[in-house]
Amino acid sequence: MTDVLTVEGLTKTFDMHALGDKQVVGLDDVSFTVRRGEFLAIVGESGSGKSSLLKCLYRTYEPTAGSTVYHPADADLATCDDRTVMAIRDSTLGYASQFLDEIPRVPAIDVVARPLMERGTPAAQARDRARELLDALGLPEELWEAYPATFSGGERQRVNLAQALAPEPELLLLDEPTSALDPETRTAAIELLSESTDAETTVVGVFHDRDVVERVADRVAVLDGGELQRVVPVAEFAAEEEEEVVA
């Protein structure tokens, strides 16, 4: 099995100038690989560095040290220049934060269709695909032409997830994409995510909910205080939990 991403010694510290140049450690010497087509879940307590890790991988945070080699583009995302990052983001690397970072006054369907159109898909076809995804995620049809700014948390999160899945990126980074969904919608989202990984999209996703992790993940990376504790197959992760419960 080939690797999509090789992360070595990834470290992120923040210099907070307003706090007397205080240094805050976000990630400390994190190393792991992501295999093509797998679903790697990242778990850990709040503040353990899960979101920081995803943002470092996407270069929204600039890593302080270490490397993250993205094999499809043969580039080190930690150090390559901004234009290279832009080109990779525009082609094969996707990211969805927990909250929809919507562009104001764009209807939900166009929020989802836009990444496809930017990659050259004709508008009509892009909108068809957007409808398909919004329908699969159970967003009521009367909301498709509305602006997501007025949507509920769960509705926005569905738009967000559909937008991330639409262009079928090679590597998709997801930050708690199902946190605001009700159980039924969550199941639909999980099914879509599972189908996507079957279709050769690789996913690195941060999840809070153990139940979701056990249903979608192939392997689980456990973060604690910015350090990577271990990366284990999901069965092992599930077994650990049972042991904890028994103990």
Binding site: M16, A18, T60, Y61
Partner: peptide
């Protein structure tokens, strides 16, 4: 990158 400058500002003034 705009998102990097906004979310991970380095310079004291940008922060």
């Amino acid at each position: 990158l705009t998102d990097r400058v906004m979310e991970d500002p380095h310079h004291e003034y940008t922060q």
